[in-house]
Design a protein around this nucleic acid. Structure first.
Length: 394
RNA sequence: GGGGAGUUGCCCGAGUGGCCAAUGGGAACAGACUGUAAAUCUGUCGGCGAAUGCCUUCGGAGGUUCGAAUCCUCCACUCCCCA
């Protein structure tokens, strides 16, 4: 592949490359580049938003470069202040380790994990003594750190900023120095941290890394960036049906953007799809995404399920089986059953759902919030609560 | 170190002795509608209970009072001004 072709691949789904001429020079070297991506194990699931940047790393990997995944086990104890208006709670070592294990497995769905260098940053950060820390601090001024947008905002809004948070960019920059990164990837909100890497590398006599920034994927609500704490996310380990359904729920304006960031569909094709009927475009998008993380067959099944359940308002053929708990006896108040099965969070909430017409048994709406059924009447029926909770009672 | 302001339900925020399980907005959930889990409209939104009701909640711990989110004391945390 020519350098131009490589750059074309790398440019897809990026907002900024700092800077492209430098990157070109690096690509011309006849050695694999070291491509660094830092991951903060503050979350348990890899979301499609996170996947955007992991997929970029995969792009580099496919072009023969060395992917280096930095597990921010040390920095997670600070918590990156990016885009946060609040101090993040500091995680304990144990919490971090649990998250790391969960998330590592998921990376394999995107990266060639065998060929990926995975390094915890406690490896070098954990060894620094206070003198090292002071020397590091001496390389950067307060004014420079405070330029950072979220610090400025918090400062102006009279919100607390912990001293340790100011250190975050320095630690992330130190990672780049320790790993001798040629390129660092990141979401757009990482720009400041990534640039700090350049500054610190230069201060340590290294060639400064290039920075490749990806846009932040907007979540299923169509407003905020996709994140686990906002609940507007799709996890790459979501079931095919969930993945499909959630994708169908995104606002139409997001279709092209999601094609670009979440799939491998060539952009020309994506553009013509997006210009067509939004429903069809979204069905295709949803199938592409499911196929990526599950399989093509799973994608077709998820489509079928979606059409049956939502478009045609039928019951799914294969509702999840749920045994009726024995302690409910033989005359079972439906509301209690619903909450016992975890389909509503309390008996009262379940009764509210019934009142609102959100509960049906074998497609027949139940109107009485205090309805009781005998065990024999219930077994074999499909209980539906809300739009997408189905259980086959046994 | 001195002075001032603040901490309310998932989030923001009103509430200054009983009418407060606590206004309002957002989120979430349900219904109608829809190509859609979009938009819009309607409703629900601490727990238990058929219900008058009972229990738990307004940073934490005590106290005053027939009665406290609201008053007092101490503690913790945050912000501002001065040093």
């Amino acid at each position: 592949m020519t350098i131009d072709e490589q750059l074309a691949v790398l440019r897809r789904g990026t907002t900024e490359i700092i800077d492209e001429a430098e990157l070109r020079k690096k690509l011309e070297k006849d050695r694999p580049l070291r491509i660094k991506l830092g991951v903060d194990p503050t979350a348990r699931d890899v979301t499609l938003g996170w996947a955007v940047v992991l997929r970029k790393l995969r792009d580099f990997q496919k072009l023969g470069h060395q992917a280096v995944l930095v597990i921010g086990d040390f920095t997670a104890m600070i918590g990156d202040p990016s885009g946060k208006s609040k101090t993040r709670k500091q995680l304990t070592r144990e919490e971090v380790l649990i998250n790391v294990e969960a998330v590592k497995k998921q990376f394999g769905k995107i990266l060639d994990i065998e060929k990926t260098e995975i390094r915890p940053n406690s490896e070098w950060l954990g060894k620094m003594n206070f003198e090292d820390v002071l020397r590091l601090c001496g390389k950067v001024t307060i004014a420079r750190i405070m330029e950072r947008d979220d610090f400025t905002k918090r400062w102006d809004a009279h919100q607390p900023i912990g001293m340790h948070e100011l250190m975050y960019p320095l630690l992330q920059g130190t990672d780049s120095v320790a790993l001798e990164a040629d390129v660092e990837l990141g979401g757009n909100d990482q720009k400041f941290n990534n640039l700090m890497g350049r500054q610190l590398q230069a201060a340590n006599g290294q060639e400064a890394q290039c920075v490749v920034l990806s846009p932040l994927l907007v979540g299923t609500d169509g407003k905020e960036k996709m994140s686990q704490s906002l609940g507007n996310y799709i996890s790459i380990v979501d079931s095919p049906n969930d993945m499909f359904g959630k994708t169908m729920s995104i606002p139409d304006e997001l279709i092209l953007n999601w094609f670009e960031l979440c799939t491998d569909v060539p952009m020309d094709e994506a553009r013509s799809l997006a210009a067509g009927h939004p429903r069809d475009a979204k069905v295709r998008l949803a199938k592409e995404i499911v196929a990526l993380y599950h399989s093509a067959e799973a994608a077709s099944e998820a489509e079928k399920y979606f059409v049956e359940t939502f478009s045609n308002r039928q019951q799914p053929v294969d509702a999840e089986p749920a045994p009726i708990p024995a302690e409910l006896g033989d005359e079972i108040p439906l509301a209690n059953l619903i909450s016992a099965l975890g389909m509503a969070k309390s008996n009262g909430a379940a009764r509210d759902l019934i009142k609102q017409g959100g509960v049906s048994l074998d497609a027949e709406k139940v109107a009485d919030p205090f309805a009781k059924f005998s065990r024999g009447d219930l077994v074999g029926k499909v209980l539906r609560v809300g739009k997408h909770q189905f259980r086959k009672l046994e």
